[in-house]
Amino acid sequence: MSTRTIDPYAAIAPASSRHFLYALNPLAKVAGVVPAMLLLVFVRDLATPATFLVLSYAVILVGARITRRTAALLFLGVPLGILALGSGFALWVDAGLVRDSIPVLRIGEWTLFQGALEIGFATALRLGAILALALIGGLTTTGPDLVRASVQQLRVPYRIGHTALAAFRFVPRFGYELSVIRAAHRVRGHHGGRGPFARIARGWGYIVPLLAGAIRHAERVALAMDSRAFGAHPTRTERHLVPFRVRDAVFIVLCLAVSAAIFTILFPWQLP
């Protein structure tokens, strides 16, 4: 993974006033979209997920800064994924359910029905829509801010919150330790072979030293934290406030209202 170069603490680049998503409380961005995500799991049509997909893209394009990486994710990764998933699912749909629809493709005995394609793509589109909703918060929030908001608004004990913050710091360290262990094993001629099996055997050999090193490091960091009054009081002075403001409430309410409107208008469930 490319985690080595990523600094989990680097502040997300200053947002222009248009990029309102950065100014929202992370919890608001979660609370706003979670109901829609949950309901989406249970829809079967194409229109509802498509609507949510388009809407989420609109929100992201307006409210977030689009870097090359996010652009690639939004305009290459997600569409390709949906395409691949959709056709993949279509292949495995039970032919009995869709035998009445129009055959699209026939290879020998086997027929691909339009119904199968529909089911396949509905499934893929649904997953895509859920993903796009999650990206609204995911692209515009840092992990540390989510943790701070959880401590400040959800009253998560700060020792747990800081454990999470410490975890973010361990990420680059793991990358470093892994590269060292890799080099060390290479030098000792350990599992030098090529091919997937040698590679798996090699990876397996890294696990214990890597984890042992990481846990030792964690124990040392714990001593240092204890020595600096970690856990002395139930709460601590907060310098980084992640406030929950009116705009956050407005965002949540808007999200819920729009979701409700879409589900009502398109009502994707047949009534008995």
Partner: peptide, 30 residues
């Protein structure tokens, strides 16, 4: 604290494992 941070280390290790697994399983979901 030592237990909390040990969990953090294991969690990070898990994330490093799950990161690629997550993409693989997404790509292979079909």
């Amino acid at each position: 604290t030592a237990v909390l941070l040990t969990c953090a280390a294991l969690g990070v290790a898990g994330a490093i494992l799950l990161g690629p697994a997550n993409w693989l399983s997404t790509l292979l979901a079909g």
